[in-house]
Design a protein around this nucleic acid. Structure first.
Lengths: 216, 216
DNA sequence: CGGCATCCTCTTTGATACTG
DNA sequence: CAGTATCAAAGAGGATGCCG
């Protein structure tokens, strides 16, 4: 991309990460951690491989990402965020926070990846009973499963397989999101095809307005 | 721009404001307030008018900006940010905060506009003596003058003409910025062509590390 | 496979000129 | 002042091929 040629901090930032796809590459590395080329491609549905390649070279030369040849058992090079790259987290998060307003309904053709649940989880969920028992919720949306881990008073999204979840949520991404954000009650979710197995009272601990909506 | 087709909050946000120039248009409206087409064009050096026009239409249909026909004495329509548009402030600010690292030197050919001093002012300057006397610094960088107003413990950038500033700073944008950010001492600034007239001790009140650098 | 590079078409951009 | 018109050049998107 051509630089803006403006001596302004915001324009200089966009000179580096303002190209199409660039901030989404950073999003993937923030959500997934160090990635192979293929992992990035999977997390960026729609990107042509030559563009991914070109963007990575640009971000690498700008010092946002770096490649490291990993020792066995990985046996490939992984793409990491540098310190400078991690400092883009506030940018990506504020964008996501602004963008949640468009998530009410899923457009036809929209693709979903489990790791994108990270934003709603950190935005909406917190543990109302920080000294209660730890628990785990498995979330299945058609992509690989993700896990909401409630532990030591914090709520985190995990992408690795976790044994014996206490609750399993299964359904379309927008329905699961509606439930987690408190915009949909459990009964509304179930009416829209959500399947729940396990003690639903656990949701009470972390979902905003859950008590209210479950009464209604 | 084609939508990313991803059911992800960050991608949805970029579907709306991810086009080239879009976030800079928002930057101008945040810094300048409601603008005429021509004011925007001046604050976005390098933008072709058809692109500005096209972006404004897109942002308007997305609900980020709106046009309002102003009564006399304005006698033209002004472009305003909507509430949704103002909520992009954290996005633009976090971008600017990330981008200040590229401001150490001004690239040849870079254009500068006074209103862009708003970011460094809110990022770097605060009043160390909130109960001291109010004062005003006029900053002249070749573009129209801007004023740093220190009043009631807060430091703000003003773009309207203000009478009788207590101090006048005059010099190239990168030198003025170096001084305001504390990366340049007063003597280094003067050695680089900065002209100062008035009681320089006032800078002590608001510039980070000023005491240290003025000693060194 | 994983990690790109190539080719081709289509859209967007940038620069300039022009109009109500 | 507030745009639209025109046009060349650059970039994006999609398919496919190569090479360890």
């Amino acid at each position: 991309m051509k630089t803006y040629g403006q001596y302004c901090a915001a324009a200089k930032a966009l000179d580096v990460v303002g190209d199409r796809w660039s901030l989404l590459i950073v999003r993937e590395l923030l959500n997934q951690g160090p990635c192979r080329f293929t992992d990035l491609k999977y997390g960026l549905p729609g990107i042509p491989p030559n563009l991914l390649s070109s963007r990575l070279r640009h971000l690498e030369s700008a010092g946002v990402v770096e490649r490291r040849a990993e020792p066995p058992p990985v046996a490939t090079t992984l793409i990491h965020l540098t310190g400078m790259g991690r400092e883009l987290e506030p940018v990506v998060h504020s964008l996501a926070e602004w963008g949640v307003r468009f998530m009410a309904t899923m457009a036809p053709g929209d693709v979903f990846r489990s790791q994108w649940l990270g934003f709603p989880v950190s935005l909406y969920l917190n543990d109302r009973e920080p000294h209660g028992q730890d628990f785990t919720i498995k979330v299945d949306t058609g992509d690989r499963p993700a896990y909401i881990e409630v532990r030591d008073g914090s709520v985190r999204l995990r992408l690795e397989t976790m044994a014996e979840p206490d609750l399993i949520l299964s359904g379309a991404p927008d329905i699961v999101l509606g439930l987690l954000s408190g915009h949909l009650s459990l009964s509304q979710g179930v009416a829209s095809g959500l399947e729940v197995s396990g003690p639903t009272a656990l949701l009470d601990r972390i979902v905003p307005g859950y008590a209210a909506t479950s009464l209604g």
